[in-house]
Nucleic acid binder design. Structure first.
Length: 641
RNA sequence: GCUGGCGUAGCUCAACUGGUAGAGCAGCUGAUUUGUAAUCAGCAGGUUAGGGGUUCAAGUCCCUUCGCCAGCUCCA
């Protein structure tokens, strides 16, 4: 048979040769690293004998599919260990996921995380034994008989769904363990030397809260102990950067408890961070052609009926009775901006009209989903609504994407753009006419194409009221977060009958775009804290400089320096406490103050200071002006767009 | 919301199978006058999340409410 390689070179092999043998023919190293193959587009086991001509790709841990196969194989390995140690364990599902795998079980008398050691020991034993994974194909009936025999009720339920698929059913066997599985798998258990069991949690069977709760065990596996160690230390680092921990250590905010779950109380230091972010946001928006507005926190329920929120978002809203009317706390800012738009008859000459507000919204979120600043019940959306004509769409989208990227650049976030489009199979689900959708979808794509931005189109991901562009931001640990979002809206202009008078004297339906760049100010600050590990850039640091006189005799000079810095708009504090310099420096370092000015006898007499930079250390003695210059540069606010 | 875990001083954590709470840090007071990540001493701090129950006796066992954490589900 003729085998073609990815570089389009080709070679003849005898029929029945396996992927592993072909890999070995290329190099020993490749054979060692190979996990599975892609053959004529199908992912197959390395050990499967090949019979036809075709294109082969040998996949290793560096390939996404190879990684998945190893992790999925490891979930089988773990399941076999669990089933051996806990007889009577019924298997749920055990897929690979980003960064690892899990398996859901119904385990009788499971002892939680303390069982990990035993499970891991059994897994290691099997790794050492290097048991081969054997694929076996069988008819639907045979498979039912097999799993029925084993009492695997969940597997039988999964099988039911394959009943009419008509394909033959495949199972994978290693040792005594059998699992319903499409594959592919790595050749044997010996491939999973570098695994780690991570955590356990409850999970509903098939993700449905009406079903029974199974025990889920999470783990991960890598191709080398180095990579495993790196991943584990990344998890460790993420834990250290947890914004909830840093937020309370740095005195930025407090959430929940007596103050109510999911409600954020900004402490003075955290308020400075917020104010700086918001002020910069406002300036940047004014400069970019937005008009700032402000709307109330509550509005009559009729407004929410008109907007449609009452129908589809009621369960997440808070209601209150005032006089004889019913009101709702705003879960979104758009209806408020609509009222402002509708305040007078609008001319095409006023468009595009860009309204922006840092608007606090309240949404009922289920108690279990609340998480620090990332998921709360009251938060500030940096909302903007653009009203424009059809001709202006492309340009407005480009402007707003650029504007969003400007904000990510300020903080050195990476990014990835997603364009969410309608599902053409289900046009009834969406507001607006399909031909309008097409037009706008093309306009969004054109806007991105013209800018030369890479993006991924996701069909069927659009919300019902319009297509959208989501920008996911990538932080210092390589994690992606929900970032700026730009959403087209066919629904609201229609519901509120939003129009403008064109140059033809006729009324036209206005086009509307919602956009948020920080998303939620609260969540964004959470992201910033984790991204910077609490070492916020100078302009955001609540306290920018600590002034440290060494002895009481330098207190007067220290006060002079303090007032000089304060007059320059630098946030500084004087720490003249009766403590050693070492002690006060340590405290300034742990509270992550970017700069320290130490003033001793030598400096005091000569108008100098000794500058120390957070995490870097002592910069030595210098003229006050020189230190101020360094401090001002380190605390400079970002350039406006 | 669901499942599980947890809740002891401002923070981090102790208190064996039930025998009426203890330390470090922070705080306060004093001594010390300090040269780049913790000077010393003293003092104070708790209805053990709230409520109810079992017991001679509850931080510890049971019930319940609240909150927090992990995961699931959800996320216009």
């Amino acid at each position: 048979m003729r085998i073609v390689f990815p570089d389009s070179s080709a070679k003849e092999y005898e029929a029945g040769t396996t992927g592993l043998e072909i890999a070995g023919d290329i190099s020993q190293g490749l054979a060692r690293n190979a996990l599975i193959i892609r053959f004529n587009g199908d992912l197959l086991d390395l050990t499967k004998p090949l019979h036809d001509d075709g294109g082969i790709e040998i996949l290793t841990f560096r390939d996404e599919e190879g990684k998945k196969a190893l992790r999925h194989s490891c979930s089988h390995l773990m399941a076999s260990a669990v089933q051996k140690l806990y007889p009577g364990t019924r298997l749920g599902i055990g897929p690979s996921i980003e960064n690892g795998f899990y398996y859901d079980f119904n385990i009788p008398e499971f002892s939680g995380i303390s069982a990990f050691e035993r499970i891991a020991a059994e897994m290691k034993r099997q790794v050492k034994e290097n048991i081969p994974f054997i694929r076996k194909e069988m008819s639907f009936k045979e498979a039912v008989a097999l799993f029925c025999d084993k009492g695997e009720k969940y597997k039988l339920e999964l099988l039911e769904e394959l009943r009419d698929a008509g394909e033959s059913i495949s199972v994978y066997i290693h040792g005594d363990f059998v699992d319903l599985c499409r594959g592919p798998h790595v050749p044997s258990t010996g491939y999973m030397k570098h695994f780690e069991l991570l955590s356990t949690a409850g999970a509903y069977w098939r993700g449905d809260e009406k079903n029974e709760m199974l025990t889920r065990i999470y783990g991960t596996v890598f191709d080398s102990s180095k990579n495993l160690r790196e991943h584990l230390s990344m998890l460790d680092e993420a834990k250290k950067r947890d914004h909830r921990k840093l937020g309370s250590e740095l005195g930025l905010f407090t959430i929940g408890g007596e103050g109510g779950p999911g409600l954020v109380y900004w402490l003075p230091a955290g308020t400075i961070v917020r104010e700086e972010l918001e002020n910069h946001w406002k300036k940047a928006h004014v400069k970019s052609g937005y008009q700032l507005v402000s709307t109330p926190h509550i509005a009559p329920v009729e407004l929410w009926k008109t907007s449609g929120h009452y129908d589809y978002y009621r369960d997440n809203m808070y209601f209150l009775d005032i006089d004889k009317g019913e009101y709702a706390l705003k879960p979104m800012n758009c209806p408020g901006h609509i009222i402002i738009y509708k305040n007078s008859k609008r001319s095409y000459r006023e468009l595009p009209m860009r309204l922006a507000e840092l608007g606090m919204v309240y949404r009922y979120e289920k108690s279990g989903v609340l998480h620090g600043l990332m998921r709360v019940r009251g938060f500030t959306v940096d909302d903007g609504h653009i009203f424009c004509t059809e001709d202006q769409i492309v340009e407005e989208i480009q402007k707003v994407v650029n504007f969003a990227l400007y904000f990510l650049k300020i903080f050195n976030f990476g990014y990835r753009i997603e364009l969410s489009l309608m599902d053409p199979a289900d046009p009834g689900h969406y507001a607006g006419k399909p031909e309008e959708w097409k037009k706008v979808e093309l306009a969004l794509a054109k806007a991105l194409d013209d800018m030369g931005e890479d993006y991924r189109s996701v069909v069927g991901e659009a919300v019902f009221y319009g297509p959208k562009i989501d920008i996911k931001m990538k932080d210092a640990l390589g994690r992606f977060w929900q970032g700026p979002t730009i959403q087209f809206d066919f629904n609201i202009p229609q519901r509120f009958d939003l129009t403008y008078v064109g140059n033809d004297g006729q009324e036209h339906r206005v086009f509307m775009v919602h956009r948020a760049l920080y998303g939620s100010v609260e969540r964004f600050i959470g992201n910033l804290i984790e991204h910077y590990a609490g070492n916020l850039p100078g302009w955001l640091a609540p306290n920018q400089v600590v002034i440290l006189p060494i002895m009481e005799s330098q207190l007067e000079r220290a006060e002079e320096v303090e007032s000089i810095l304060t007059n320059l708009g630098i946030r500084c504090t004087l720490d003249g406490r009766n403590e050693t310099v070492g002690y006060r420096i340590r405290e300034a370092e742990t509270s992550k103050v970017p700069f320290m000015l130490v003033i001793g006898e030598r400096e005091s007499a000569s108008g100098r200071v000794s500058l120390r930079v957070h995490t870097e250390g002592d910069r030595g003695s210098m003229k006050l002006d020189e230190a101020i210059e360094t401090i001002m540069a380190g605390c400079r606010r970002p350039e406006l767009p």
